[in-house]
Design a protein around this nucleic acid. Structure first.
Length: 417
DNA sequence: TCTGGGGTCCTAGGACCC
DNA sequence: TCTGGGGTCCTAGGACCC
């Protein structure tokens, strides 16, 4: 009596990994959110920003035919494609569809995980028996139809024996297609690409390659790991050597809890005045601390970032002994960090951001010590006040800064004058 | 035509402890 | 008195991805 094959524990054959990527997710979601206005519209740009210095978040395939790309300034995109309809990021629909996608892929394998809002990996290794031993490409097509039925979204699917190659295969599947790299063909597949097609090779590494005369995959793959180590250090060398051969043994795993929560904004015009920067900083603090509490976290490290007109970023951070989550304490620390940054540089600023790291789900410090008495300390009243503000904000949908925070700021401003 | 906002991961130096 | 490494944490900056 033949038991169904359980695959890997009996025989270490190639893994069967699929990478699922929603085609122009934000465009599809915008249409689903407003079918009356956008149904049947071919030229859609998602993007822009309140600052008027926005870029394209996502472009419909119609727009892409005009040369429009993600991250391109919206003004440039409109010059290339003047008839495009520009819409805002459909945040709520994106979250809804991302959740729907996550629950749908989970039905196809116990080893399935979202990699971002619009991407997922499914490890089908060992499920051959469940799928009548059909080729991986057939299973991928059935998954594609299932996801369309259950979420309304068109997806493209890449397949291979590992995550890295599956993801690169997906670009050959777009839009709404399936592309599977046969087992054993991973290296040949990668060899047919360009260095900039490799995941993790961005503008900086590409420029470094070019400077050294490495202009194509053949010359990259001809390098030995010692030469690469002399250029970029041993870790990066090993990483790139394996990457340009399609080698990746990493498992499919979900992302555990968040590691950081941040909020930043680019101003319509550059700002130099400290008082105005503090007011704008408060807006970011209220936003990021609200996200922190909504997600049930406390943070130990607070970072303030400024971007200057020359696009250079400067940041200051501080790690507290306690984990905190109230607007008051986070703002008081952020304000000092901003003051420190401005003491060193008073040039005009185009962006301000606050990021929270060292996240935990409890306010308790890991170990008590005497320095835990160093301010700023967050008390029960701070937390209750912030929670009350959250409730009011949820109810009225307005951004409200707690009075004590504003009073703190007013007092110190008067003190400055 | 100047270049968003949300993240993750890595590096490197200094402090500090064992 | 001089001389160690290893490990971990913190800070600042940067590359990269969607």
């Amino acid at each position: 009596m033949a038991a169904p094959s359980l695959g890997p524990q009996l025989k270490a054959g190639p893994r069967r990994i699929l990478h699922v990527d929603v085609d122009a997710m934000f465009v599809q979601c915008a249409v689903l959110a407003d079918p009356e206005r956008l149904g049947g519209v071919d030229l859609i740009l998602v993007g822009g920003s309140p600052s008027g210095r926005g870029v394209v978040t996502s472009a419909s395939y119609g727009c892409r035919a005009y040369g429009v790309r993600s991250a391109m300034p919206t003004a440039t995109a409109l010059r290339l494609c003047p008839d495009a309809t520009v819409v805002k990021v459909p945040g709520e629909m994106v979250r809804t569809k991302s959740r729907a996608l996550a629950s749908s892929i989970a039905d196809w394998s116990p080893v399935a995980a979202m990699a971002s809002v619009d991407e997922a990996y499914i490890d089908l290794t060992g499920t051959e028996g469940l799928h009548r031993n059909e080729p991986l490409v057939e299973t991928a097509r059935r998954i594609q139809r299932d996801l369309k039925e259950r979420t309304g979204l068109d997806v493209s699917i890449g397949g291979a024996a590992n995550r890295l190659v599956a993801k690169m295969a997906t670009s050959f599947a777009k839009p709404a297609g399936v592309y599977v790299v046969a087992p054993g063909e991973e290296e040949a597949f990668v060899a047919s690409l360009q260095p900039e097609d490799l995941i993790g090779v961005g503008p900086a590494l590409l420029a470094s390659l070019r400077r050294r005369g490495i202009v194509d995959m053949t010359s990259l793959r001809a390098l030995d790991v010692e030469t690469m180590a002399a250029w970029w250090g041993p870790d990066r060398a090993r990483w790139l050597w394996r990457r340009c051969r399609g080698i990746d043994e990493g498992p499919i795993r979900g992302r555990e809890g968040a590691k950081s929560i941040s909020s930043e904004t680019t101003f319509p015009r550059d700002v130099s005045d400290l008082g105005e920067l503090e007011r704008l900083l408060l807006g970011r603090v209220v936003s990021v601390a609200g996200s922190l509490r909504r997600q049930g976290y406390y943070a130990r490290t607070i970072t303030v970032k400024l971007r200057y007109a020359d696009f250079r970023d400067r940041s200051r951070s501080r790690t507290l002994v306690d984990s905190v989550q109230s607007d008051r304490v986070i703002f008081s620390v952020a304000r000092e960090l901003l003051g420190d940054l401005r003491r060193h540089n008073e040039r005009p600023v185009r962006l301000i951001g606050v990021s929270l790291t060292g996240l935990s789900d409890s306010p308790e410090p890991e170990q008590q010590s005497l320095i835990a008495l160093v301010p700023p300390r967050e008390n029960a009243r701070d937390r209750a006040l912030s929670a009350a503000v959250d409730r009011i904000r949820d109810k009225h949908g307005r951004v409200i800064a707690p009075g004590s925070v504003l009073a703190d700021q007013r007092r110190s401003r008067e003190g400055d004058g």
